[in-house]
Design a protein around this nucleic acid. Sequence first.
RNA 1: GGGCCGCUAGCUCAUCUGGCUAGAGCAGGGGACUUUUAAUCCCAAGGUGCCGGGUUCGAGCCCCGGGCGGCCUACCA
Length: 515
Amino acid sequence: MTETSSNESAAPDEASGSEQSSSSGMIAPRDFDIPYRFDVTATTAALHAEYDELEDGAETGKTVSVAGRLMLKRDQGKIVFGVVQDGGGRIQIFAPAKTTPDFEGFASLMLGDWIGVTGEVIKTRRGELSIRPSAWTVLAATRRAFPDKWHGISDPDTRYRQRYVDMWVSEESNKTLRDRSRIMSLTRRWLEDRDFMEVETPTFHSIASGAMARPFTTHHNALDMDLFLRIAPELYLKRLTVGGFERVFEVARVFRNEGISTRHNPEFTMLELYWAYADYTDIMELVENLVSHLAVEITGGTTIDYDGRELDLAAPWKRASMIELIAEHTGLELSVDMDRDALAAIAAEQGVEVKDHYGTGKLILEIYEKTTESAIWGPVFVTDYPKEVSPLSREHRSEPGLTERFEAIVAGRELCNAFSELTDPDEQLARFEGQEADREAGDAEAMGMDMDYIRALEYGLPPTGGLGIGMDRLVMLLTGSTTIRDVVLFPTLRPEQVTGADHASDAGDDTSGDD
RNA sequence: GGGCCGCUAGCUCAUCUGGCUAGAGCAGGGGACUUUUAAUCCCAAGGUGCCGGGUUCGAGCCCCGGGCGGCCUACCA
């Protein structure tokens, strides 16, 4: 309501004497000298690690400074108990009137305020590790009412839109998001230990290629040209292998203009790596070793519980070809050499919506996805995809019509996609042409032709194994999250509708006015 | 994109088939309390029931339209 909030007088609420305007959840500005820095000498986690074994009532004589957000306050009259939360945990502040500077001020702090506390580490008579302040300072005075201190925020919409609240009010959200960061870090370290180097390739692509998906389109004004946000970094990374970078990886934010669901965010993080002189069996070993390593680091073991079901991620993982798996689950003995129309009839029987331009390879993939994929819990490497649906994969060394490609199915969903890379420029050109034909037949997700990539291949790509892992899904798996939104810091949502209540915030809600 | 469901105080939730002035807890305000653990106790305050129409003597509840979200489904990872 008021635009002039920075002026000191809190006149509007003076009459009632209340600091929190009850209708908006806003708290009137309070007057504190906020320091420019604060010397933190201990984290709550470190203090618990060092002093949890103290006897009840013990005093250590050690003075420390902690900082964090006031999460609980129990005003006992002549003693105030506060609970401060920092990045790694919580600790109690034991503040008796007798020894606490500006005791009245301390007692009137609000939940949600950031404070810095300096004092002796003690254990209360009741056995709670605490700091008894000899000095304290406000580091940020909250202007917004604290959420329910027991339930936090349960409304999913608010949790995702106001992640900056969710992540300190919900221990579970906090842990999941920190685990994501650890997983990314551990992955990088693991790959670097194996001589992979991290690279960054363009996000703007003039050709949408490297995967089958619809791109987002944008426009560059100075060049007056349309550009696509990348759907995969694949073709750039393989150019690097042509250039002599033998082991590269990229943690690539990619963008796909498709639906949003519990497993799909329009922008997501794909780890891609390329390994010269390796084939897809090497990549399988890499994947099972990396994932089981991460499982141990994050969950403490390779057997995890996901969505109420057990999953054993210990290497090695089962390997089976797509055609074998279809036979196992349906009894159907299929082959890419079958008569196309006969196969189309079988596919239709299985409920596949058959389109005219589907060849036998595409039909087999459709049958697999319809009948078999969802029945697999995994982990299992599904190998040897049809050539028709794998335009960047090298043909199988002993199974014509198939490729040396696999996907790992874990917890019933696709975790990664990998293959022995197609290295022959003539063959690659022919595959691209096949994609062009699909596009003309109406397949909006067909891969774009990239002649510069063909030129790169003409300079020579050695045998190379390549991999793409959906890191968001890997994080979901390892943190037990059943929706991708819980592992993305700020998931894609529709713009928030600005309501009357939100206007009370005054602070420049200028996101409105877009229809 | 399709189907089903939801939206009540700053937060977490009630309000039974349409019917008195829409209730609690927490947070916030006032007061009590020298070892609390979601502290407790007393007092007062807090509502455009998502928005807009309609039906009705009467709508938080029924109907229509819109907004946002959740789940399922489709495409994808």
